[in-house]
Computed example of a mutant assay.
Amino acid sequence: MQKRFLFRSLSAALITSFATAALLVPTVYAGEADVYPNKPVRIVVPVAAGGSADKLTRTLADKLSQLWGQSVVVENIAGASGTIGANKVAKAAPDGYTLLQQGEGLTLNAILFRELPYDAKAFTPVIKAVVNPQILVVNPATGIHNFAEYLARAKAKPESISLGLPGNGGIAHVAHEIITQETGAKVNYIPYPGGGPATLDVLGGHTDATLITLAAVTEYVRAGKLRALAVTTAYRSPALPDVPTMAEAGLPGFSVESWQGYFAPSGTPSAIVEKINRDIQTVLKTPEVRAKLEDMGFKVAGGKPADLAASLQTEQPKYALAIKTAGISLR
């Protein structure tokens, strides 16, 4: 049976706080930032290992370790749509040694949850690292060859297609609910703690499809183990140029772009936040890393902490409207 979620209240204070968080942290002398880091750094990825967020963070962590001369440890803490991992970082010392990988999930969780385990001013934006499409893929055994056939089956036989969600209330969930609203195509949502396990079950034939960050499944599509139907962005991905956009495949004007970035606990000194930002940008700009990420399906973003804060403010009303219209919420 399809799992549906009722819309609850909007926690807009969390989103608004990101816009000013970078201005509310204490400053430190440049010399203190110069010696950062002088011990291992931990990056919390709030989803299961194996997905796109995990792949991105491990790629960056390896290069940051070399740049800093310190271990950069990636820790996967999945559960509750990323809020368990986020809460760990929110309660960590604000010294730059514990960071959070997150994307639009921070915005979505602020809209979807009645209450969050962390304060509205828990995080300081560091950098938007990449942007990327979501991609709809199916197991070839389903006999579905293109997006039109997918929609036709989901409309003719509602909930006959099982769709693995890489997280309740995530960007994939929101994007597919918009598809449902526009087409009437209904599927049976199966929630997972991340993109890795969601992908494995589609590969194994336990579920029929998933809508997921493109970078999580690029290799499987190229190998023919998964069939790509369409991407959610207004542009095709250079990593899979033959895969049409949903707008091209039957949903004119449809466009959803996701992103992934990094945050520090609120109160982290601005000089350290700026140093982490500069160093991540340095890594992102190296030809080896850029090529690897683009081959996976990511598009390198970058920018200042304030740019990420502004982005959060911009996307909040857009997703709030989409979620309210679709009737999604988390209990």
Rank of each mutant, 00 (worst) to 15 (best):
1 M>A: 14
2 Q>M: 10
8 R>Q: 15
8 R>L: 15
11 S>Q: 15
12 A>R: 14
21 A>G: 04
24 L>H: 11
24 L>F: 03
26 P>C: 07
26 P>F: 09
30 A>W: 11
30 A>H: 12
35 V>D: 12
37 P>C: 13
38 N>F: 15
41 V>S: 02
46 P>G: 00
48 A>S: 13
49 A>C: 08
52 S>K: 03
57 T>N: 12
58 R>P: 00
61 A>G: 01
61 A>S: 11
61 A>V: 06
63 K>T: 03
64 L>D: 04
68 W>G: 08
70 Q>W: 07
71 S>Y: 11
75 E>D: 14
77 I>G: 01
81 S>E: 03
86 A>I: 05
87 N>G: 07
88 K>Y: 06
96 G>D: 08
103 G>C: 08
105 G>H: 07
108 L>S: 01
110 A>N: 09
111 I>D: 03
112 L>A: 04
112 L>F: 03
114 R>F: 09
115 E>W: 06
115 E>A: 15
116 L>E: 01
117 P>T: 00
119 D>M: 11
119 D>Y: 09
125 P>F: 05
126 V>R: 01
126 V>Q: 02
129 A>S: 11
129 A>N: 05
129 A>G: 03
138 V>E: 02
139 N>R: 09
147 F>L: 08
151 L>E: 09
152 A>C: 00
153 R>S: 02
155 K>V: 14
155 K>G: 11
156 A>F: 11
159 E>D: 15
160 S>G: 10
161 I>F: 10
164 G>V: 01
165 L>T: 05
166 P>I: 10
170 G>S: 14
172 A>P: 00
173 H>C: 06
174 V>A: 13
181 Q>N: 11
181 Q>M: 13
181 Q>P: 00
198 A>H: 02
204 G>R: 15
207 T>W: 05
208 D>V: 07
209 A>D: 08
214 L>K: 01
215 A>T: 09
216 A>E: 15
217 V>W: 03
218 T>H: 07
219 E>M: 12
222 R>I: 06
228 A>I: 08
231 V>C: 03
240 L>V: 10
243 V>T: 04
245 T>Q: 04
245 T>S: 07
246 M>D: 06
247 A>I: 07
247 A>W: 05
248 E>F: 02
249 A>T: 10
250 G>D: 12
251 L>I: 15
251 L>W: 12
252 P>Q: 15
253 G>I: 14
254 F>Q: 04
254 F>T: 06
256 V>P: 01
259 W>L: 13
264 A>R: 04
268 T>L: 02
269 P>K: 08
275 K>T: 04
278 R>H: 13
279 D>T: 06
280 I>K: 00
282 T>C: 12
282 T>S: 15
284 L>K: 00
284 L>T: 06
288 E>Y: 00
290 R>M: 06
292 K>I: 02
293 L>A: 03
295 D>W: 00
296 M>L: 15
296 M>A: 12
297 G>W: 02
299 K>T: 15
307 D>E: 13
308 L>Y: 13
309 A>L: 02
311 S>W: 08
312 L>T: 03
314 T>A: 14
318 K>T: 14
322 A>N: 07
323 I>W: 05
325 T>I: 12
329 S>Q: 12
